[in-house]
Design a protein around this nucleic acid. Sequence first.
DNA 1: TCAACTGTATTAAATGACTTAGTACAGTTG
DNA 2: CAACTGTACTAAGTCATTTAATACAGTTGA
Lengths: 130, 130
Amino acid sequence: MEFCIDVTSRTPIYRQVADQIRAAIARGRLKPAARLPSVRDLSRQLVINPNTVSRVYSELERDGLLVTRHGLGVFVASPGSDLTKKSRRERLTTLLDACFTEAVLLGFTADEFAELFRERLAQFQWQRGT
Amino acid sequence: MEFCIDVTSRTPIYRQVADQIRAAIARGRLKPAARLPSVRDLSRQLVINPNTVSRVYSELERDGLLVTRHGLGVFVASPGSDLTKKSRRERLTTLLDACFTEAVLLGFTADEFAELFRERLAQFQWQRGT
DNA sequence: TCAACTGTATTAAATGACTTAGTACAGTTG
DNA sequence: CAACTGTACTAAGTCATTTAATACAGTTGA
């Protein structure tokens, strides 16, 4: 796995790294039980503080995406969402509505947006099952 | 227009207000040439500092959503995206891909997500033309 | 057992974002 | 001119982010 950060971005480093790991897991580039770089290794690789990496791993473990085993390392968790169907739906709806808002403001028509959606959906690697 | 803020949220106030205005414009609840509350009025209404409201208006003017007329007030700009087609597409693609990632991690199948997309698209008020 | 690797916890400090406060200036209107 | 508009500026406080340094605890293989 290759990670990269943009230190000039206003997005916090820990957020950039966390989002890259989330995307990698969603796309199946990081499979369940796969081992992530150690806190110290990743911090050296990205030239950031070990605490920052530790924070990323903690957040993703809290979200159920990673599992840490003390002394062994951090691993990709087995899939399985423990959120209720309702809250899962609400969460995705919020994100989706933000897309709609942005699409309108960018001048997209509903048809154009629907077309873009179909394109990206077909291209996306839908790896992680429930 | 009614705005509300959640002071307990970790989302900055200026971001909450800005997002509500963006959504209102996208949904057509704020139409072109409509006048927004004055900096001082909105700050009194939301019980926040006038500087914070001013920051919101400045950001939205920089993004081309609002136009300010000194001494008169702040108004909704006429639609018209001056971004290139390519950059508009890239921006929306980034947002969409974030939705895909979240959908997978939440355990949605591609079909389920596509169905949710259709539902929300039909429900969304697609007001602002180019 | 011990060295070398894992993750975790803690404190301290620097930087910058966010927000408020207060004041002052400039354009518009009746 | 009074009363409204937006803007600019300084100052201060709070909090998030990041780095630094150190210490502690679990796991592994020689």
